[in-house]
Design a protein around this nucleic acid. Sequence first.
DNA 1: CCACGGGCTGCAACCGGTTGCAAGAAACAT
DNA 2: ATGTTTCTTGCAACCGGTTGCAGCCCGTGG
Lengths: 323, 323
Amino acid sequence: MAATIRDVARASGVHVSTVSRTFSAPHLVNTETRNRVLAVAEDLGYRPNRAARALTTGRTHNIGLIVADISNPFFPPLIKAAQAHARARDYHVFVADTDEDPQVEEELIQTLAKQVDGVLLCSPRLSNRAIERLHADVPFVVVNRQMKGLPTILMDVGQGARLAIEHLTGLGHRRIALLSGPSGSWTSGEMRAAATAMDGVELVTLGPNAPTEQGGLAVAGEVVASGVTGVLAYNDLVAIGLIEGLYERGVRVPDDISVVGVDDIVSGRLNRPKLTTVAMPTAAAGRMAVDLLLQSFGDGATPTLATLDTSLVVRESTGEARQ
Amino acid sequence: MAATIRDVARASGVHVSTVSRTFSAPHLVNTETRNRVLAVAEDLGYRPNRAARALTTGRTHNIGLIVADISNPFFPPLIKAAQAHARARDYHVFVADTDEDPQVEEELIQTLAKQVDGVLLCSPRLSNRAIERLHADVPFVVVNRQMKGLPTILMDVGQGARLAIEHLTGLGHRRIALLSGPSGSWTSGEMRAAATAMDGVELVTLGPNAPTEQGGLAVAGEVVASGVTGVLAYNDLVAIGLIEGLYERGVRVPDDISVVGVDDIVSGRLNRPKLTTVAMPTAAAGRMAVDLLLQSFGDGATPTLATLDTSLVVRESTGEARQ
DNA sequence: CCACGGGCTGCAACCGGTTGCAAGAAACAT
DNA sequence: ATGTTTCTTGCAACCGGTTGCAGCCCGTGG
C-alpha cells in the first residue's frame, strides 16, 4: 500500500539506511543525496511509520491521556491545552475515557503502555497500589490526585475554598454550608480541611453528595433547613442543581442564599443566575502535565509535586447576606 | 524492561513461534504446552506488544476518532458510545482534537494513519479533496458530513427541523424564525431546506450566526424586531444565547416567544427555562460509525450512507402562541 | 608518495512479533 | 509392517524502520 523506506531507497538508488538517516539524522547525509531522497519521498508520498520506528528507538512520540469521564465539562479545557502544548513539542496526544471504571482504566493503560511514551492520568479511579504496579510499564504523570513517588499535579482546591469563603464572609455571611463530594474524594477532603481551619465562620458540612446536578438538587432541603446564608458546593454541577432545588422551594439566589461552585464549567456561565465559582487552572495543568512527562523522559526520575493556584470568579450567584 | 515474547520463550523452554501462537492461534498449540506458556507469561507480566504485532499483521486493533472541538458538548456522548462499542469488539479508540484547524486535522490523520486501522472523522473541517486524498492512507467513516464514496453517517437534521416546526405550529405559532448557522454549514442548509418546504408557516431566516452563545445573543434584537412568536435555532448554544438576549430585552420565554434548539446538550437541561430541543442520536451515531468501520475492514469497499432519525424533546422553552 | 582523518554510504543485526513451510512423532488405516 | 494423516513444534524470513561498524573516497600535511 503506502510507500515504505525501501520503496524510497529503490527509487532514489541509495540504501535504506541512507533514507532512514535523511529523516532521522539529516546532518549525516550529503546535501545533494538528501535533496534527491526528499524529492523522491515527497513524490511517493512517503511518511515514516512512527510505530515501526518506535520498535527500535523506544520512542513513539505519542502520549496517552486518560480521563475518567470525557463528558465532564471539567476535562475538555485540560485536554485541549495538553494537546496543543504537546503538538508544539512534536508529540501527539491520544485521549481515552475509562467510563469511571477502574478495570477499564487498567486495561487501557496496559494497551496504551507500548504505544505511547508516557501517560497522563487525570483523576484516576485506580487504587494507589495498582497505579504503582502499572508504573513499571510506562511513565506517568498524575493530575488531581496525591500520589507520592510519581510526578503529580494538583490544583489547590484548599486555597480555592479559602478564597470562596473569604468572599462570602466579605459579603457578611457568617453561617456557611460546605457541600462535600463523594466520600473518599481527595478534593473534598482538601476543601473541608481548608474551610474548617478558617475562623469567623460557622461551618455546616452536608454530604456526601453525588458530584452531579442530582446531588445538588437532593441536598437543597437540608441546606434550607440548616439556616445558612452562604454555600460552597463541591463543584459547579452540584451548585447548579442546588440552585434549581432552592428555586423550587421559593428560595432565591443570591437574594436569600449565596452559592459558590468549583470548576468554572461552561454551563455555569450560561446559567441564570450566572455562577460565582472557583476557577481551576485546567489549561495550565494540562500544559504542565505534558512538561513534567517530557521532562521525566530526559533524565531518570524527576518525581515532582506541582501545585497550581485557583482563582475566584465572581458572577451573580453571590451577594450581600440578608440581615 | 518489559518482558518480550523471547523472554517467555526462554523461560518456558519453547520457541518464540510457539509463544506467539499461544496468543494469536491457541488452537494450534498443545493444551499442556499452552498452559505452561500462559503460566510463565502471567508470571513475567508479559503482554503482547500491539504495535509490533501490527507490523506484520497490518492490524493494530486501534481506531482513531477525530473531532473538531472536544469541548463542544455535542461530541462527548458520541465519543463515549464509540469507545464502549469498540471496546466490546476488542478495539481501542484514540481521540484527538483538531482545534478546528484543517491543517492540524490533516497532520493528525497522517500520524494516526499507521497507528490505527481506521479513522472516524466527526464534522471534519478538511476539504472534500483533502479527505479523498488522505483516504488512500487509511479507511475512514465520516460522521456529520455528506461525502459520497465514503461510508457516511448523517443525523437527519432536516427531519428534526420538521419535528420542531410541527411542534411550534401545533402550539399555534405561525410566524417562525430560523436562526441559521455559519455560512456554508451543511447542517444549516439541510434545516433551511426542510423548513422552507413546510406549509402553513411564515418563515423568517436570520443569519448567518456564529454557532455559539454569542451568536444567539447577538441576533436577539433582530428576532424581536421580526415579530415572530417561535424560533428554531441552529443549535442549543445559540438558543441559550438568544434566550439570554431576549431576557435582557424584557421578552419572556416561553410566554412571549418560544425557542427550540438543536443537539440536546447538557447545558440545555440545566438552564432555566429548560430548553426544548431536537435531540441528535449521537450515541447511536458513535456506535454505528464503529460498526461501519469494522465492517469496511472485512470485505472490500462497503460505501454506505446511514441516516439516523432525530427526536424532539419538549421541555419548558416552548408554549402556546400568544393571541 | 604515503599516512591520516573526515565525510558519506552500505552492510547487517536488531526491535517484538507473525507465519508459511517442513520435519518429527503419534495415531490411524490398509 | 508400511503408507497416510493429524498434531505439534521449530526454523527462518519478514514487517518498517534504526544504528554501530566498517570501508570507500578524497583532501591535506609531512
